[in-house]
Design a protein around this nucleic acid. Structure first.
Length: 427
RNA sequence: GUGGGCGUAGUGAAGAGGUUAUCACGCUAGGUUGUGGCCCUGGAGACGAGGGUUCAAUUCCCUCCGCUCACCCCA
């Protein structure tokens, strides 16, 4: 055979475009409602940005990056996620000198070399937001609320929020060592996969999919028991703000889930995920958290930040599952059907109609029957029939394609035809 | 990286070790000399690749490739 698209990529065909338009429009609108403005960063960045930002030890950096060298031997990587790039842009463009916090959103393709499966692609798209330069719990709640409104406005129901607090880097060592000890004492009850996890990333044992491990994890030490002082105040204030959201959004609800951890190194304190209650294996629709250390790690001055990323493909999957209706694009207002020697006149008429903002498509030059069928398949509102007869008389036959639509002769003039179809449309 | 399932026209399916591989939808031409949808008749279009077994393989076997689901991980 011939060429095929690379594994894990998709052609987004016209039948799916209404979903994409809906998601993009909703993202833009909701972000705007919260005062977030759009930022577009390059599709590729220096490889070291992600090594430092996402974390050298993470799976994303270890085995999932699309890295390459360009002709100048520069090590570059197709972006696997959005936060590192936005923070780089924040530092590089001197945003810290402007009013804080800086609220930004992005919609862009992300690239990860993984085995594709339901809800997972090598090229996928994310809508994400970042609020940088504010450490108050109010901004945590704002980002969480924005995520909720986005999902709700997409028309998706039955989604639950899970939140946790990972504490701060200083205090986390104590927690991880206690957690390590807890699981090590019970290592004979752990599946092999979880023993490996315990070696690599003790926190990840908490969100294991192995049922026996889950039971152990329920009774494991909790990160929220290891936070204190300002971190604890922040956490308790956030929970009150979330309770407040419940009174505004009737469907909103959340669970504190001490087993919620994240796979990227930069998170601290607040982490959260939105997931449908009946989710499949790749069910997380939107996930994020606070990343106060990140800007510093990337060489900027210490600046707090919080944000989320959400997979557009997963949103669309869920919308289809829940049979969310999206607006379908209308067909052209006019399909011009040309007969005999009227081809040139028909093309000229189509041009004139578009010039007066009537969407117009020229039918392929075939039999009249075929042209009519074409117009019907295009979902056209009207056909304009132009044959030798009409051209001779200086008229065009305009026919509505609605059921029992009538046909009348109109002067062969774009303005007159435009007026006619606009008039009948409003009847 | 690991494991399961699956590869037949554009799509969805059926099929048999042996002349021309079947059906539906879609596409296309006509029935209707210039009128779409419904109906009728025709046409184009497919066995993923390589190897093996066999007189004969699209069918059985193997390998590869691809798709898909799950794990790992993540949006």
């Amino acid at each position: 055979m011939s060429f095929k698209r690379p594994r894990g990529t998709a052609d987004i065909l016209s039948e799916d475009q209404p979903y994409w338009s809906h998601v993009y429009a909703t993202g833009r609108r909701v972000a705007g409602q919260f005062g977030y403005s759009r930022i577009d960063t390059p599709t590729f960045e220096d490889t070291s940005l992600f090594q430092r930002g996402v974390g050298d030890a993470t799976d994303i950096v270890q085995k999932e990056m699309y890295s390459f060298q360009d002709q100048g031997d520069n090590p570059l990587t197709l972006r696997p996620e959005g936060t590192a790039s936005v923070c780089r842009a924040y530092i590089e463009n001197g945003f810290q000198s402007g009013p804080q916090p800086v609220r930004m959103f992005y919609m862009a393709p992300m690239f990860r070399y993984e085995r594709p499966q339901a809800g997972r692609w090598r090229q996928h798209h994310q809508f994400g937001v970042e609020a940088i330069g504010d450490q108050s719990p109010e901004i945590d709640a704002e980002v969480i609320e924005l995520g909720w409104k986005y999902i709700a406005d997409l028309g998706i129901h039955g989604v639950k929020l899970r939140v946790n607090n990972l504490g701060d880097p200083e205090g986390r060592a104590d927690y991880i060592s206690d957690l390590d000890q807890y699981f090590t004492e019970r290592i004979d009850q752990l599946a092999k996969i979880d023993r490996d996890r315990l070696q690599r990333a003790p926190l990840r044992v908490l969100d294991s999919k192995v049922e026996e491990t889950q039971q152990l994890a329920d009774n494991a030490p909790k990160s929220i028991d290891y936070i204190g002082g300002e971190t604890k105040d922040h956490w308790e204030a956030l929970l009150m703000l979330l309770d407040n959201l419940k009174t505004i959004y009737p469907e909103f609800s959340y669970d504190v889930d001490h087993r919620l951890v994240r796979g990227l190194d930069y998170y601290n304190r607040t982490v959260f995920e939105y997931e449908p209650s009946n989710a499949g294996s790749q069910g997380t629709l939107l996930a994020g958290g606070r990343y106060d250390p990140l800007i510093g790690i990337l060489g900027g001055q210490e600046t707090p930040g919080i944000g989320f990323g959400s997979g557009i493909e997963r949103m669309i999957l869920e919308m289809k599952k829940q049979e969310v209706m999206v607006a379908q694009p209308a067909g052209p207002e006019i399909v011009v059907v040309a007969l005999g020697d009227a081809g040139v006149a028909a093309a000229g008429l189509a041009t004139a109609l578009r010039a007066v903002d009537i969407s117009t498509v020229l039918a392929p030059k075939r039999s009249m029957k075929a042209q009519m069928r074409y117009a019907n398949n295009q979902n056209a509102a009207n056909v304009v029939i132009l044959g030798d007869r009409e051209v001779e008389n200086g008229v065009a036959s305009v026919k509505s394609l609605t059921e029992g639509g009538d046909q009348s002769e109109v002067a062969l003039d774009a303005a007159a035809i435009a007026a006619h179809v606009r008039y009948t449309k409003n009847q």
